[in-house]
């Protein structure tokens, strides 16, 4: 009896030693020398692997950061400035602070504003729909409403609003990784500076048709009327191809353009509610 136990123990121990030796030899043979700083940098990164930095994942980004001469143009949108500062400190490199950004949907073509002209009956995918035709409304530029951006968002920061048919960005969760921008076949989504106190203004339309055509397709379309350009004291608004664009680097958030816009295509975010004019007059009196 005891010899059986002994033989068993001996056999298993020998097997264990043999396999351990094999593992050790293989590990030695295929060992890859790596810069230890890559591991350190990777540990600093958020680990979301969202691809927002332009690399395939956090490790790939860490490798690029370690190899890079300077960190100009290297930015992790999820970790933001604090993480990038830590990365720079670990690598002994300089980094300039970047303004935080957020995704904005440049289309106000809700189901109310933009009447449907056909019924889309294919796979629920903007990519499929965009490959098929110009869209189920008179506007060839706006949101197709199938929600590819919401599917692409790794942070659950975009949701489709069933009442408007448009995506809504949750700015608390949005990290400006840019996956939604890449997923949108119409180029409706833009990453813009978040702005002081998260206040910002943007033209929520990219319709390049002439005013009349655009207005016919959507009541909230930018018609390229130039009113916003005229009222802007900072030359921040431009109209190109019949559509206005606000340069967020020049915009000082005076909101004159939004007031002047006849179609309401200019959207203001996180400003205190504007009191109606009459009320203001009363207050002064």
């Amino acid at each position: 009896m005891s010899s059986t136990i002994l033989i068993t123990i001996a056999c298993l121990s020998a097997l264990g030693l043999l396999l351990a030796a094999v593992l050790y030899i293989v590990a030695q043979k295929f060992k890859v020398e790596e810069d230890p700083r890559i591991d350190d940098v990777e540990a600093l990164l958020p680990g979301a692997n969202c691809g927002g930095c332009g690399s395939a994942g956090c490790r790939a980004f860490a490798e690029r950061c370690v190899k890079a001469e300077t960190l100009d143009g290297y930015f992790c949108p999820v970790g933001g400035n604090p993480v990038m500062k830590q990365v720079a400190a670990r690598l002994g490199k300089e980094i300039a602070e970047a303004a935080p950004r957020v995704a904005v949907v440049r289309c106000s073509g809700s189901l109310d504003n933009r009447p449907r002209t056909s019924i889309y009956n294919g796979e629920k995918s903007c990519k499929v729909m965009a490959g098929l035709y110009s869209g189920d409304t008179g506007c060839r530029y706006g949101c197709l409403g199938q929600g590819d951006c919401a599917v692409a968002c790794p942070f659950d920061a975009i949701e489709m609003n069933p009442r408007t048919g448009l995506p809504v960005v949750n700015e608390e969760r949005c990290t400006a990784c840019g996956n939604c921008v890449a997923a949108c076949p119409k180029g409706v989504i833009e990453l813009r500076n978040k702005g002081p106190k998260s206040r910002r203004l943007f033209v929520s339309c990219i319709n390049q048709d002439k005013g009349g055509v655009a207005r016919k397709a959507c009541s909230a379309a930018c018609i390229g009327c130039m009113k916003c350009v005229k009222v802007c004291p900072f030359e921040a608004v431009k109209v190109e191809n019949n559509v206005a664009y606000i340069d967020f680097n020049k915009c000082r958030l005076c909101r004159k353009c939004a007031e002047a816009c006849p179609t309401g295509a200019i959207v203001e975010v996180n400003f205190p509610i504007r009191l109606p004019k009459e009320v203001e007059v009363e207050k002064q009196a």
């Binding site: 056909s118 889309y120 294919g122 490959g131 098929l132 035709y133």
Partner: peptide
């Protein structure tokens, strides 16, 4: 105007 169905083939 009549709204027609549109889908891929």
């Amino acid at each position: 105007m009549r709204k027609l169905l549109v889908s891929p083939a």
